[in-house]
Design a protein around this nucleic acid. Structure first.
Length: 568
DNA sequence: ATCCTTACAGAGACT
DNA sequence: AGTCTCTGTAAGGA
């Protein structure tokens, strides 16, 4: 949320969720009413569900992307695009669909150890980036590259061009941050900004990236169809578990995942919803080394959850199986929906439903059982989540006052034991709600991406990185199966903390920003360390074989060198 | 507490 | 480029 409009509420109330589901019903009505109006207007007699998706596709869509509008290539780009949109068997969109980038088993793995120095900054990849982005297909000319380097060095923010000296400067800045206010930093940033040339654009790459982004857009019809499918199903499940599980009386539903963050690409075919049980007072103990897993126990008091308590620990596996059984019953009454087979250690109950369009994958809905804890964030999070320079100290403190969640997720087969507690009974900490909020309020300035403000390319960069990753996964599924969109998201979040100003992410500088983001990612891959954004000590790349992330780095470098043929 | 209205953001599509 | 449409989110009143 931004400066305008309703003030941001500090915390969601308990009632908010039931309200939400009710609203969903009401909205469905409103929508069908509105739809009728629209249909009359357009003389379209088709029923909503059978609505002709091609309708939208027949209409030439002008790219709403600044670069596409501005550039000489606009016409060409637009035409190409329309052709692609008109063709149902479009194979450029095809590959995206099957790639479920979200199965991120490694997110669970523990960081072996992260050695003291400069963890959050990937090592120097300037060599790679500068050299590889030179060839004619990728015309970052030497001048702009030099300029680029200079820019970055001046800013002392990029992970790649950081010299020991500049790092120290950054580091001390960061530490002083505790004493200095965010405003002070902004002032400094503003000063820097005046000295720093603004953008290093690259028309050729820009054009490819804009065209790609256009392809990744979710079609309006698809979205409408999806919401018509997904919302009643969500409501039905929510109402059912609330009524039929006695410890679900106070459950709240928290929509999460890329769809609700407006980061979903291609088709609206994956939805995540957390069903959260609010807990008043809990004892938590970390499980294993990486700081993301906890055993959760209830403090004294009466709770319907008592029956799941063993060794002062709430058994995630027992709760999950009761939850799963109840969802199963409900799904039987949902025509067109099925329950997917349970995956080992998977926190979600995955349901599959109808398709939003003929070419898409069936909709999948992950219903995640979780606990909502209203107390200060665990100790392990204290060194992570350093957003002061980007979003300000006040915003950070506001976030830290919000509750956090535990999802029923473990690693391995669940039989590993620490202190007499089995892995299957532990919970993984989750900050999806914070991630979602940050993605929505991602600007250093309050007006970033608003009508009155400047548009930035943070989200576009992330979409492109996700897309690149899923295309590479599709190319080499065995090698890259463990990489997921969460790696991309985490890379962006770190990048936002390194390059904090909105002017570092101007929409017009898409190619520069995206290339820089790729360099960040390469840096993490080459080091083999990508710290969780919230829990620094958890390495999201632990558990992936070294040869695989080296290989991925290779593939990405190749794309950089050749000007992203994979997108064409 | 629940229902309903209102307002706004975000994004796609239309003119 | 400006405007409209639709979905999702949230506040607040009845």
């Amino acid at each position: 949320m931004t400066g305008r409009g309703r003030p941001r509420k500090a915390e969601k109330t308990n009632g908010a969720e039931s309200k939400t589901t009710q609203e969903e019903m009401k909205k469905a009505v409103t929508r069908s009413r509105r739809k009728n109006v629209t249909e009359e207007k357009h003389d379209d007699t088709a029923k909503p569900k059978e609505m002709d998706q091609t309708k939208a596709n027949h209409t030439p869509a002008k790219p709403s992307v600044p670069g596409a509008r501005r550039g000489k290539t606009t016409k060409h780009t637009t035409e190409e695009l329309n052709k692609q949109q008109r063709t149902p068997s479009d194979d450029t969109r095809g590959p995206v669909k099957g790639t479920k980038a979200k199965t991120c088993s490694d997110r669970a793995k523990s960081a072996e150890e992260i050695k003291g120095e400069q963890q959050e900054t990937p090592k120097d990849t300037t060599e790679v980036s500068v050299e590889t982005t030179k060839p004619r297909k990728c015309p970052l000319n030497s001048k702009s590259t030099k300029h680029f380097e200079e820019t970055m060095t001046t800013q002392s923010e990029t992970p790649n061009s950081i010299t020991q000296e500049s790092f120290k400067i950054t580091d001390s800045k960061a530490h002083n941050g505790k004493a200095k206010s965010a405003e002070k930093f902004r002032e400094e940033a503003m000063k820097d900004q005046q000295e720093t040339p603004k953008h290093t654009t690259n028309p050729e790459i820009d054009s490819i990236l804009y065209t790609t982004l256009e392809k990744l857009k979710i079609r309006k019809n698809d979205k409408a169809n999806a919401s018509e499918i997904i919302n009643p199903a969500k409501k039905k499940i929510f109402d059912h578990v609330k009524q039929n599980i006695e410890w679900f009386k106070e459950v709240e539903s928290v929509p999460t995942g890329s769809y609700y963050e407006n980061l979903k690409i291609s088709d609206p075919d994956e939805f995540d919803i957390m069903l959260a049980i609010p807990l008043e007072r809990v004892n938590i103990r970390s499980f294993g080394e990486d700081g993301a897993y906890f055993s959760v126990g209830l403090k004294r008091g009466n709770s319907p959850l008592k029956k799941f308590q063993e060794n002062e620990t709430l058994s995630a596996s027992k709760m999950l199986s009761e939850f799963r059984e109840e969802v199963k019953k409900c799904v039987k009454e949902l025509p067109g929906w099925q329950m997917a087979k349970m995956k080992q250690g998977c926190p979600a109950v995955t349901l599959t439903g109808p398709r939003v369009n003929a070419d898409s994958e069936p909709i999948s809905l992950d219903v995640v059982l979780c606990l909502k804890v209203k107390s200060s964030w665990p100790e392990f999070t204290h060194d992570g989540f350093q957003i002061q320079r980007w979003l300000g100290t006040k915003v950070m403190q506001e976030y830290k006052r919000k509750p956090y969640y535990f999802v029923a997720k473990h690693e391995g087969d669940g039989e590993d034991e620490h202190d007499g507690i089995k892995a299957k009974d532990v919970w993984r900490i989750s900050f999806s709600h914070i991630e979602k909020d940050i993605m929505r309020n991602h600007g250093s300035e309050k007006t970033c991406c608003e009508r009155e403000g400047k548009r930035c390319c943070r989200k576009d960069c992330l979409k492109l990185l996700k897309h690149l990753l899923s295309l590479l996964k599709e190319k080499k599924p065995r090698l890259f199966s463990k990489f997921c969109s969460y790696h991309a998201k985490t890379t962006l979040l770190h990048a936002c903390c390194l390059r904090v100003r909105d002017s570092d992410w101007e929409a017009e500088s898409l190619s520069r920003c995206f290339i820089q983001l790729l360099q960040d990612f390469l840096g993490y891959l080459e080091k083999g360390v990508l710290p969780n954004f919230f829990i620094k000590r958890q390495n999201l790349l632990a558990g992936i074989e070294q040869k695989n992330y080296k290989k991925l780095a290779c593939c990405i470098k190749e794309e950089l060198e050749k000007g992203f043929p994979i997108f064409m």
